[in-house]
Design a protein around this nucleic acid. Structure first.
Length: 301
DNA sequence: CATGGCTACGCT
DNA sequence: AGCGTAGC
């Protein structure tokens, strides 16, 4: 997938798939007795019990963090199961995880073009599949909407106090016949991703979380919003509200020195602050080549 | 010694 | 090719 080419109205449907505590899931598949137990994967366990590189959600509930050593984790959660990462030639060997990731990618690739962004993360371009679905079935017949899709989070679809009719509201949103074309495409994306996540679970036993949006940046943000084993969609109409108070340092590519310089040099702390600057000014300061990043951000609204 | 090691990417 | 940055 080529770098996001920002257009005035981006109608692509992009999903970001993020495997939940992936190394742990791979080990739990290999050792089923670990399922449901607080578990972490460690490397180099000779010093203070080794460094944690993946932590199950059960263990996170005890306060176990990825930055901990094995010994610290045992203090917080004495019953934690520590699994050693395989070692080859004295080094951590991540090949089994890489292969497990490939298995997931081969399933996702049935519906769109995949771009692996890390060992456990994939971007998926579902534009064509969504457009096809839209021309074939519009509006969606209620009975074809799978339960998993109804559990989606859709930014801007607010849960009521009792939260009892959230699913009903999501159903309405998914079926809305007079919706914006982009909303309809996004709704198709939501259905496709729900279906794919079920296939992944069935065929690999792995759960994942997903974000569905009109570009990679927003899809990535969305996939982290509701974890584990959930999916979140970002309709165009909710982008501005989502981004304007969003900390710039948490944006991909801006977690390091570039983000720091935005804060100290320009006083930019949120994406909303960034909107006060023109593309020209930003490119003038940071160069034409870094400027494309800002343009993607600015064109998301 | 004590997040290390690894990868991908952009810049020069 | 080699370096710096970023993030897993």
């Amino acid at each position: 997938m080529p770098v996001a080419k920002p257009e005035a109205s981006d109608s692509r449907v992009i999903a970001h798939i993020d495997m939940d505590c992936f190394y742990v899931q791979v080990e739990q598949r290999k050792h089923p007795q670990l399922r449901g137990l607080p578990t972490a994967v460690v490397q180099y366990n000779s010093w203070k019990g080794g460094g944690l590189i993946a932590v199950s959600y059960e263990a996170r509930n005890y306060g176990v963090k990825r930055s901990m050593r094995g010994d610290e984790a045992k203090e917080v959660c004495p019953e934690i199961q520590l699994v050693q990462v395989p070692v080859a030639r004295g080094k951590a060997d991540l090949n089994t995880y890489r292969e497990a990731g490939s298995q997931v990618v081969s399933i996702l690739a049935r519906r769109g073009r995949c771009e692996r962004s890390s060992i456990d993360e994939v971007y998926l371009d579902l534009t064509d599949a969504a457009e096809r679905m839209l021309t074939e079935t519009s509006p969606h017949s209620l009975e074809t909407i799978i339960e998993e899709a109804l559990k989606s989070h859709v930014l801007g679809i607010t849960s009521r106090e009792d939260g009892i009719d959230v699913k009903e509201k999501v159903r309405e949103w998914l079926c809305k016949s007079d919706a914006d074309r982009r909303d309809k495409l996004l709704a198709c994306g939501v259905l496709i991703v729900a279906d794919l996540r079920m296939q992944v679970l069935q065929e690999t036993q792995f759960t994942c979380s997903a974000g569905i949006a009109h570009n990679k940046m927003l899809a990535k943000l969305a996939s982290a919003m509701n974890k584990p084993a959930q999916q979140t969609a970002v309709p165009f109409s909710s982008v501005k509200g989502l981004l304007e108070s969003f900390p710039i340092k948490k944006m991909k590519q801006l977690g390091g020195k570039l983000g720091s310089s935005l804060q100290t040099d320009l006083g930019v702390n949120t994406v909303g602050d960034l909107w006060q600057f023109s593309e020209g000014k930003l490119q003038e300061r940071y160069g034409i080549n870094t400027g494309w990043l800002f343009i993607v951000i600015l064109h998301s609204i």
